[in-house]
């Protein structure tokens, strides 16, 4: 049993809430402060907290590095794909109006922004986790006692 019992219990409670908050920030970003970047960073921080408390190997079992690698590129593809989709619909690159040209309430813009923010979320969250994995997996020269 590790000495950090309180940390473990509290973070087990907190981590799902942090992930949920990230999703709230993501999907409420059109109406209040927030958006893909913030949501991505918050989501990554949930995983980082898990890794800090339960160890990197546990975190890597929950979110394997291969997922992270795929997620990083998927986000860019979603974003770029949105632009290509507007091309195919006859508009300019990333001109979202062409998703719903007849809408009076700019529905096309809403869909476009939604898709783009999803891509941003995917890339930012995965890239942050990847960066943390990379730093965390390097072997340390310092032990806990050195502090």
């Amino acid at each position: 049993m590790s000495p950090h019992v309180i940390l473990r219990v509290v973070s087990k409670l907190l981590i799902p809430l942090i992930a949920l908050f990230a999703l709230y920030v993501q999907f409420h970003g059109d109406f209040g402060p927030g958006g893909g970047f913030q949501a991505g960073v918050i989501f990554a921080s949930a995983i980082i907290l898990y890794a800090l408390i339960f160890g990197l190997d546990e975190a890597k079992r929950a979110i394997p590095p291969s997922w992270v690698r795929i997620g990083m590129s998927t986000g860019v593809i979603i974003y770029g794909g949105t632009g290509v989709a507007t091309w195919l619909l006859g508009g300019e690159f990333l001109n979202y109006t062409f998703f719903a040209p007849d809408s009076t309430h700019a529905a096309g813009q809403h869909w476009g922004i939604f898709a783009v923010e999803l891509g941003v979320l995917c890339t930012v969250a995965s890239a942050m986790v990847a960066i943390f994995y990379a730093f965390g997996s390097r072997t340390t020269e310092l032990t806990d006692e050195d502090w």
Partner: peptide, 17 residues
């Protein structure tokens, strides 16, 4: 600045690596 902050952390991470 929103853009700059996120790019800033990316460059910082590269520098640290």
């Amino acid at each position: 600045i929103l853009t700059a902050i996120v790019v800033g952390v990316a460059t910082l991470a590269i520098g640290l690596a």
